[in-house]
Amino acid sequence: MTGALPPSPLPLPLLAVESLDAWYGGARILSGVTIQVGAGEVVALLGRNGAGKTTTLRAVFGLGPRRRGQIRFLDHPLIPESPHRIARYGLGYVPEDRRLFGELTVLENLEMGRQPPRPGRPPWTPERLFALFPNLGASRRSEAGRLSGGEQQMLALARALMGNPLVLMLDEPSEGLAPRLIQTVGETLQGLRSEGVGILLAEQSLTLAGAVADRAYIMEKGEIRHHAPMTALLADPTTRQSWLAV
């Protein structure tokens, strides 16, 4: 079932998840999840609704599920570590339901995401982000709760970028987005990749992931069932059909 591991693009991944188990209460949600994300690569985490993608991302960030296993980010072990310190190490996270501060303005939402620049990288500023997402710039003083669904997704992404992440995890960023916006997200992710940011992209469909990801892990019932370069996955309809059914 598990495809042979393709050679990692870099000797040392930025984010390395090894044999991660996770529980909610007594129910085991994840077992033996192993994922690596290197600098400058987009890694897709694919699987159906309920496969364990969101739990994986939350477990990496120390949000909720009880964890066992190893998670390393740069040189830092992330178990046990509190979420705010994980964020300060340079791990960014855009959750599935966006989780904007609806009563804060667009600008204030961005300010909440601000972290010190990382050495050797141009820091993200609201101006730079507004150039990327003009709609946000136009409504910078509006309450985030009043933005349209697409704009909210853009803001959630922009807010995460304000933290100048070295690795960015996104949970279904294409959900509910019109094709053109999905393209914008895709271009943004490619831009980040060219700056050396590692990206872990959890998706149900291949619409976005198929266009930008270099490698893909496929999850089912809390386990990684398949791991392949994206080109191989795209050329293999049988695998796609049996694990993703899209």
Binding site: H84, A87, P95, L104, M112, Q115
Partner: peptide, 16 residues
């Protein structure tokens, strides 16, 4: 004010 809305998200953004 942000924490009033969503505490968990605060820590995701690196705020103690």
């Amino acid at each position: 004010r942000a924490a009033t809305e969503d505490r968990e998200m605060m820590s995701v953004l690196g705020i103690d």
